[in-house]
Computed example of a mutant assay.
Amino acid sequence: MPTALITGASGGIGKAFAEELAAQNHNLVLVARSEKKLNELAEQLSKKFQVKVDIIAKDLTETGATNSVFEFTQQQGLTIDLLINNAGFGDYGDFAETDEERQIKMIQLNILALVDLTHKYLPLMRQRRSGSIINISSIAAFQPMPYLSVYSASKAFVRNFSQALWAENRQYGIRVLVSCPGPTETDFFTEAKFPPTLANKSNQISTPEEVVQETLKALERGDSTVVIGGFSTHVLTKVANLVPRETLLNLLEKQFKA
């Protein structure tokens, strides 16, 4: 029975991954900050699907947190067949006026924790010549976004990093996929402190379950990248390459200014 490790597993897309993979007979290692939510989810999934669910209540922005995750799986003798780096958050606002610590934590979670966990588990996958990694990015990865400057930059990093790993690791039988969802029914806009006038402006909002289904299908196809959302979402990913950069930035600044 394969084992999947999912970060940010207590809600949203991470929880949807846990539910879908448990239904597909995967054992799970669930990582998130809330021990209570993880325990509730683990109990629910283990009873319903008869799978083994381990939980690790960790804030991945804390020093040594990724080491603790890796050491736990090693001590338990767990082989991680599928790593899903889902944990992340955004923060809306004029960068010069934002909270510095929150911007640093965003980089620590969206980039550093993802890179560190990937670097810990990828060599083991290479040794076995099997395994899969899914990194959750965003359509924000396709262009700079005023008032979401650090978030969009972090997601661009995740996209480029993942695509490079896809090319490096095909020869080892390892699949690497970056999933770039558009607007999704999660707490993202609330957590990012979006102004109500800007939050959920799109009329094409995916459910976490739709994101998971499309992502897993793309993984099975061996794709390097999947963009998830309606027609306008896919158009947005192309516009950045067609419009002069200053024109694009001026449009985005006006669109996202509260």
Rank of each mutant, 00 (worst) to 15 (best):
N25P: 04
E209W: 07
S68G: 13
S206Y: 01
A32D: 10
L248A: 09
V235N: 04
L177I: 08
R221D: 13
N200V: 05
N241E: 15
S154L: 03
F157H: 10
R245K: 14
T3G: 00
K217R: 14
T207P: 06
P195A: 10
L198K: 12
L251N: 13
L45C: 12
G222M: 08
K47T: 14
H234I: 13
P146V: 11
N86K: 00
L242F: 11
S130R: 12
L38N: 06
G93P: 00
V226D: 01
N110D: 13
T247I: 15
L117A: 04
P2L: 04
P144Y: 06
N200G: 11
N200P: 05
V178D: 02
N67T: 14
A164G: 14
G8W: 00
S130C: 10
L60G: 02
A192P: 05
R175V: 09
K217N: 11
I55K: 04
R126P: 04
G88C: 02
L60E: 05
P183Y: 02
L30S: 06
L114G: 00
K257M: 05
N203Y: 09
T247D: 11
Q171Y: 07
L109P: 00
A96G: 12
L82F: 02
H234L: 13
T237E: 07
P144M: 09
L109H: 00
T247M: 14
L78G: 01
E101N: 11
D99T: 08
L219G: 07
N160P: 06
I55F: 03
A258V: 13
G222Q: 06
A42W: 05
A258C: 09
E210Y: 09
T233S: 08
G131Q: 03
N39Y: 06
Q24V: 07
I111A: 03
K105W: 03
K36Y: 10
I107M: 12
Q44I: 10
L242N: 07
N86R: 02
V235Y: 08
E100P: 06
I205A: 06
K257H: 14
R33I: 03
S10G: 08
V51H: 02
S162M: 07
Q50I: 12
M1P: 09
L124P: 02
T237I: 09
A42R: 04
E40N: 13
G90S: 05
D116E: 15
A9F: 01
E35M: 10
I139G: 03
Q75N: 13
N25C: 09
V176A: 04
Q255V: 07
M106N: 03
G182M: 05
A192F: 09
T98D: 04
E253G: 15
A258F: 12
E168Q: 11
K36A: 14
P208Q: 09
T79W: 03
G93T: 00
E100D: 13
E100S: 14
Y151P: 02
F72G: 01
R245F: 10
I84T: 02
S149A: 15
I104H: 07
I133A: 01
T184D: 01
I139M: 06
E191R: 13
A57N: 05
Q171I: 10
